[in-house]
Design a protein around this nucleic acid. Sequence first.
DNA 1: CCGAAAAGCGCG
DNA 2: AAAGCGCGCTTTTCGG
Length: 586
Amino acid sequence: MSDLNDIGLRIVRTLDDALELKRWFGERRPILAFDTETEGLHWWEHRVRMVQFGDAMSGWAIPFDDWRGLIIELMASYDGPVVGHNLRFDQRMIKTYAGITIEPHRCHDTMIAAHLIDCTGLHGLKPLSARLIHPAAVYGDEMLKKAMSDNGWNWATVPIDLPEYWTYAALDTVLTARLHEIFQPQIDELGLRDLYELEMAVSGVLARMDHHGSLVDLDYAQRKLDESETYIAQLRAYCGQQWGVNPGSDQQVVARLQADGITLTSLTQSGAYSVDKDVLGVVALDHELAGRVLDFRRVTKYAHTYFRNFLELNHGGRLYAGVRQLGARTGRMSIEDPPLQQLPKRGPIVRNAFYAAEGSKLMTFDFDQIEMRIFAHFAQEAEMLRKILSGIDIHTATAQGCYGLGDAMPTKQQRSTAKNANFSKVYGAGLERFAATAGIHLDDAKAFLDTYEITFPGVRAFQRQVEGVALERMRTTGRAFVRAPSGRIHYALDNDKIYPLVNYLIQGTAADVFKRKIVEMDNAGLGDFMALLVHDEVVMEVPDEHIDDVTAIAASVMPDLRSFSVPLTVGAEGPLVRWGERYVDA
DNA sequence: CCGAAAAGCGCG
DNA sequence: AAAGCGCGCTTTTCGG
């Protein structure tokens, strides 16, 4: 481990400091590390307080308000590579408050590199530095946190001159530069270069998407919230009067149902009686409380998770949600504040809060059954692939194979069972879980899966192959993992539990395809219209005069017709004024 | 008073 | 033989 003693950390206070910084800035170095300290996490309300530059040996802290011109001058004079830890955050801040754009092609990010090298580890700058550079890397952080709590300071009020603050800030760039030195060779050694380049390109697209946001109808959201609160209050009062129960307390619900002679059997993970949606749906036939509780949950969810957060989190009528590029271990993105990837689609109510600006419309483009198609590709199931190629829905094809229907259409029930079987394979479910979700008896489930295995032997072979590779890797490296076609490494969380790797491979490969397509669409000029990414769907806000062009470009760029044994095709929706238009009332 | 765990539910 | 995968948010509950 290298030492941190010889590092020079400076703050710019005087003109002499500034001249010294300019000299330092002009020196040759492999890469410039860049960081900012801000008042908080939201670019639209929290200002930049400090900008930091550094390399492996030196770090500079530059108070933003005093030296804004100098910072702009220096960054304009530099066109070499820049590395940050979660650089997109700092890009957004410096773009907003200094008008500085760092071109994507020269950006590097140690958080992205860390995730690609080992997605199971910690990705924070401090934990990574403590492990890979020096344990002392966390001390500065701890001292600053202590000073802040002792004095009641937060990120907006901690004095810039406080040594704990500015040295902490300056050191971050040194740690980032050193992590970069450690990670880059590993990226090559592990064969992750192409994937890293892809992720950096995605980062560039997201950096611009961060400023786009989604228009939300505040009056509508407020109205829906008010209506919901009234209904929630009524339900609370009613459940209290009738049964002495808080409908939000599962404990009380269980106790009351049992006291009234209802037999509960399903258990939660920790052994309590489960009263989830499925259970209460059945109980509702015998006890009115169950139905009331289900109503209460749905309305509370809509009101508080969605409408209330729309109202609290919007800025000027737009939601700028937090997009985590590597939010999931599989390589998927995630979205928080608010959770825009999880908006209900059973009815139009929540999604109708989203609309296009005057003179624009919403367009959505999403892959058709991308995970199932990738699954069929991995399994190399000739019959299944042939049917997909001929345009038949994959679950229909599965039902036709398993029930020996030839080309005849299956019943709804048959297709549903086949669909559940496919999902159980993709997710790695067992017999009992399959039977439960399919809603069929254990005997029938067993019989169906037996037929499934015989009809589609490639599925079993694929599972076996994943298992074999993972076990071999565990023998040779001590860790069970598989690699996707993109090169992405998927580790088993538990070496003794490797079946989820089948799902990781499928989910992760779908994410890889999606990310590549996001970049290609941006290259084709569609980046400025992108508002939202939902795993396999991109939502765009498009000016009316560009809708035809955008639709044509997306239709030609987004599908992936060559990489897999079946084409990954794309469906389009729109133009829409409101996002919920296409969703039928539940 | 705060934080974590558990349960539940929304999405792909 | 057996295993549902990945997320984010709210509410209740409980312990420090």
